[in-house]
Amino acid sequence: MPAPDTGLRVNPAEEIIATKGLSIRFLLTGESSNGSVATFELTVPHAEGLPAPAHSHDHYEETIYGLEGVLRWTVDGAVIDLGPGEVLCIPRGAVHRFDNQGTQDAKALCVITPAAIGSDYFRETFAVINEAAGGPPDRARMLEIMRRHGLTPAPPPVAKA
């Protein structure tokens, strides 16, 4: 007799969203966790970084667990290198970004609690990045997408004289 279908699945939201080597592999979304958590793998090629402006979010924490390589995170001005087996919790309201300044690709597991952001945000921003065809993405469009999905873009850095 077959087991009853409970609706439980391994990686129920598996989807890969990618641009320029940067990829997001969603594993769990708010829809599949009653809104409690979203989880995705982030892969960043060497010498690449966050293609969107630094930002903060007031509605969720973002916990990053290093899997491969080293990602350099800047959180409220503090520089933190995160390697395999290390974890970083970015609190609500902290301005942050990441870069891979290493010689190998980096991979991290990202956990969003509660699941206030999902794959739609990454699909939309990566589309704008892809449309730029290697040039800088349309900043106004990126900022609009970020705000609509609950991210607060940080002001651009002030040039030093």
Rank of each mutant, 00 (worst) to 15 (best):
I112L: 14
S32L: 07
G83R: 06
P45V: 08
R141H: 09
P114R: 02
L82E: 04
S33E: 08
T6M: 10
E61Y: 09
S119V: 11
T39I: 13
I129M: 10
D58V: 07
P45S: 08
R123L: 11
E31S: 15
T43D: 06
P137I: 07
F122L: 10
K160Q: 15
F98V: 01
R139H: 10
S119G: 07
L67M: 14
S23C: 05
V158H: 10
E31C: 04
S56A: 12
G102I: 02
P12H: 06
G93V: 08
R72L: 12
A54W: 00
R139Q: 14
F26C: 09
E48L: 12
T19S: 10
V79F: 04
E31W: 07
P51F: 12
A108S: 15
T113P: 02
R72G: 10
S36T: 11
G77A: 06
V158Y: 06
P91F: 04
G85W: 13
I24K: 03
L27W: 04
T74H: 01
E15K: 14
I24R: 08
I24P: 00
A106D: 02
D120E: 15
E41R: 10
A54F: 00
R147Q: 13
D58P: 08
C110V: 15
T6Q: 06
P12I: 06
Y121P: 06
T125Y: 08
K20H: 14
A52E: 05
A115T: 02
T103C: 01
A3T: 10
R9V: 11
H55S: 05
E48R: 15
G35Q: 07
L109H: 09
D99N: 06
Q101A: 04
L67T: 03
H149D: 06
G102Q: 02
F40W: 11
I64D: 01
A94I: 00
M1T: 15
H55Q: 13
T63Y: 03
A161I: 09
A116T: 15
E62M: 01
D138L: 11
A106Y: 03
R25Y: 02
E31Y: 08
I64Q: 01
